[in-house]
Design a protein around this nucleic acid. Structure first.
Lengths: 128, 128
DNA sequence: CTTGACCTTCAAGTATACTTTATAGTTTAG
DNA sequence: CTAAACTATAAAGTATACTTGAAGGTCAAG
């Protein structure tokens, strides 16, 4: 699959995909070069890029992402360290879940406030 | 409370707090100026800044945050629009929760893979 | 066999979220 | 009453995550 097609399927731009590759987020499992030097992507790359987008959307940096990807794939790290890193990142996700819930609760309080204000207006009374 | 104290209590720098103010994320509810022109913060500012940090940690931008804060406080927006915006943001949070769970599941699969590898090594068999 | 739509690399430009530096005024401790 | 430790503003610098532009190679259609 050529870069333009992958871009469409992941809602990214070809430039962004090349950028991720330069940053070390894509490897031989995802891309290969044709005889013309064009990048040729495997089907696997689609899911990989969609995962990158999700990871980004929840506030992780590309550097953190690269750390996990490399820790997983590269063989110069002891298995125990890889497992440790994965567990640590999963804990970070749990923290982020808590934070999301706190933000949600905050917005819900703001909403309740406005709803109450709206009700009082409907009833014809004059709010502050 | 002076800016240095607020900074310590929120784990931010004074510069960052001034920056947030310049970006319109803090208003009269949170700061006032003394006769010496020094900023004087209310207790409320602590929670407000901690909430800003949480919102940032889960992937929202300061621009989005400002939109919600202003929509809530500023009076030139109809109440119905404010309610709409709050509901929309709460939906975005729900989406982010889903994304967090997907990323968590992905990491869990990676972890399971490594754990299995570790088990096979312990048993003395030779993994690939 | 050329035109347009791709592809390549590399460098420079942009937005966001700050930090750092410079310059200057204020407050507090000894 | 002076020196350290704050405070202020403004402007420039930095890191991250891209985008845009330049200059050129490749491919598919007519």
């Amino acid at each position: 699959m050529k870069i333009h097609v992958l871009a469409q399927r992941t809602d990214l731009t070809p430039s962004a995909i090349r950028f991720y590759e330069k940053e070390g987020l894509l490897d031989a499992r995802h891309v290969q070069r044709g005889q013309n030097n064009y990048r040729d992507y495997y089907e696997e790359a689609v899911e990989h890029l969609l995962m990158i987008r999700k990871v980004q959307a929840v506030g992780f940096t590309l550097a953190e992402l690269k750390e996990v990807i490399q820790a997983y794939e590269v063989n110069d790290l002891p298995l125990s360290k890889k497992i440790e890193l994965l567990n640590q990142k999963m804990q970070e996700i749990d923290r982020k879940k808590d934070e999301l819930e706190q933000v949600h609760a905050h917005l819900a309080r703001m909403l309740a406030n406005k709803m109450a204000l709206m009700d009082s207006i409907e009833k014809g009374s004059q709010p502050k």
